[in-house]
Simulated assay, not measured.
Amino acid sequence: MRSEKGISCEINGQIIKLEVPPSRKLLSILRDDLVMTGTKISCEIGRCGACMVLIDGEPTNACLTMAYQCEGKRITTIEGLSVDEIDPIQRCFLEEGGYQCGYCTPGMIISVKALLTRNPDPSQEEMTEALSGNLCRCTGYGGIIRSVRKAALLGRDTS
């Protein structure tokens, strides 16, 4: 007999109510139940950042987050960043070549969103620290850092 529990949380601005086992991972809920495949499956042990989402504004690995931990939380996935138009951070990643295969890109963008929300003028060290939970196996990180710098400059120009 499966023990399921009702959870309620906000995902990308919509209240979601699900009956799931409390130990079910957020990553599988997003991908399998809600068909939000922008959050990627990779290491499944919290080391690569491909599954990064924002939970109450903080970057969090969805592969390590259990359903019961989502109760009452506000969750933003990569799909939630661009509702009517592409997010400026996403545009900067496109313009500055902050991706190669693209698999790590959603997690990178989520981490950058959290960084620039709390600190619109980060130093190089702060950028590196903010991305320390995200791994890219294709690039040398040059395009990624250029993308973050451009997004920070763009954010300052609109403030």
Results as ranks from 00 to 15, higher is better:
128 T>W: 00
69 Q>V: 06
65 T>W: 13
43 C>A: 00
76 T>E: 07
107 G>I: 05
12 N>H: 07
10 E>A: 07
137 R>G: 00
98 G>Q: 08
126 E>V: 08
151 A>V: 14
147 S>M: 03
67 A>L: 06
133 G>R: 15
137 R>C: 02
47 R>K: 11
91 R>W: 03
128 T>I: 07
111 S>C: 06
107 G>K: 14
123 S>F: 10
98 G>F: 02
77 T>S: 11
92 C>V: 12
91 R>M: 03
81 L>R: 15
70 C>H: 01
42 S>M: 04
130 A>R: 10
93 F>T: 12
52 M>V: 09
68 Y>E: 07
134 N>L: 03
123 S>I: 13
59 P>H: 14
155 G>P: 14
113 K>N: 09
129 E>S: 06
7 I>R: 02
9 C>D: 00
103 Y>E: 05
7 I>H: 04
79 E>V: 07
4 E>R: 15
149 R>D: 04
70 C>L: 03
135 L>M: 11
154 L>A: 07
8 S>P: 04
105 T>E: 05
88 P>H: 11
130 A>I: 06
89 I>Y: 06
84 D>S: 14
91 R>H: 05
51 C>E: 07
64 L>K: 15
85 E>N: 10
65 T>E: 03
17 K>P: 00
4 E>C: 05
7 I>W: 07
128 T>A: 01
124 Q>C: 01
34 L>E: 01
79 E>Y: 03
132 S>K: 02
38 G>C: 03
44 E>C: 02
75 I>M: 04
50 A>E: 11
11 I>S: 00
